[in-house]
């Protein structure tokens, strides 16, 4: 990831390699962003314009009307719902990442009785379609008095079997036993070793797991649909679904809502960028 200037001269890629690489990356970016571009264009249109004008060109300016419609359809709750989504996704992401990495660390570095069984059970959790578990989960959470609270969304969202497998993989690859031994010989306790050494080594991996859980929580629909009743608690995705479940939604308003709700994600992505790169890889530590 180091910039070109740091590359030793002998390793400078040939101009041809460089050109091909850039073309591939840019072409891929165009393909991935083209639908997003359509989203931006469409969020400025009225319903009839969406049908009658070229989808790739701007036609008429309906931005203000769409924003007004968005606020009206969401009963003025739109930004509150964005805030709810931020809260749920952040808390679930942070808790989920810690829990996953901690569990992955246990599986990777400790001889535990019943380990094979555990891993099979986690895999089993991954195999069952989550949508089908939502109703039993709802009834169970209702018994615990958790439904219609933020925990009804956060607790299930922070449990990520895949996160545990990823965590295990990253610990296997990025946390050398020698470093752990050294830390223990220094008299550092297990918990301290985990928080000061292991988590630091795993920073880039944790960013990845965090992002996965964060986005999955943000976009989850069925769970909040079942668990939450109060309009004050809704996440923004649910609100957008609500606008769409009517026969004739104002598409421009829904699309604008989607775009506005993606902005926090984009900001988050760039903020996390720092941790991604600053993560100490095992090689750097050893070297």
């Amino acid at each position: 990831m180091a910039p070109t200037t740091q590359t030793p001269p002998s390793l400078r890629p040939s101009p041809a390699t460089l050109a091909i690489t850039r073309i591939v990356l840019i072409a891929a970016a165009v393909l991935f962003l083209a639908p997003v571009y359509w989203l931006i264009v469409s969020s400025t249109k009225s319903n009839p314009d969406l049908i009658s004008s070229n989808g790739l060109l701007f036609a008429g300016n309906n931005i203000v009307e769409n924003y007004t419609a968005l606020m009206s359809w969401t009963q003025g709750n739109f930004w509150r719902w964005v805030g709810n989504s931020m809260l749920y996704s952040t808390v679930a992401g942070v808790l989920g990442t810690l829990v996953s990495v901690s569990a992955g660390y246990a599986l990777a570095k400790f001889r535990m009785p019943g380990k094979a069984g555990i891993q099979l059970a986690i895999l089993g959790g991954l195999l069952m379609p989550i949508a089908l578990l939502t109703v039993p989960l709802y009834i169970f959470f209702n018994g615990l008095g958790l439904t219609n609270t933020i925990w009804a969304v956060i607790i299930p969202s922070c449990v990520s079997p895949f996160g545990v497998f990823l965590g295990r993989m990253f610990v296997d690859a990025g946390v050398p036993d020698e470093l752990l031994e050294a830390s223990r010989l220094d008299g550092s306790g297990e918990v301290r070793t985990f928080f000061t050494l292991v988590l630091r080594l795993l920073a880039p991996a944790m960013v990845t797991i965090f992002l996965f859980i964060f986005v999955a929580t943000w976009n989850n629909f069925l769970l909040p649909l079942m668990m939450l009743n109060s309009a004050e608690l809704k996440p923004v995705t649910l609100g957008l679904y609500g606008m769409m479940s009517y026969f004739s939604p104002q598409y421009g308003a829904v699309l604008q809502g989607a775009l506005l709700s993606v902005i926090p994600l984009v900001v988050l992505f760039f903020v996390l960028q720092r941790y991604w790169q600053s993560g100490l890889t095992a090689g750097a530590v050893k070297g």
Binding site: F221, L222, L225, N229, S230, A231, K234, L238, G239, Y241, G242, S245
Partner: peptide, 9 residues
């Protein structure tokens, strides 16, 4: 309370 899903849901 407005339910945001489909009728069957």
């Amino acid at each position: 309370t407005k339910f945001d899903g489909k009728a069957a849901e």
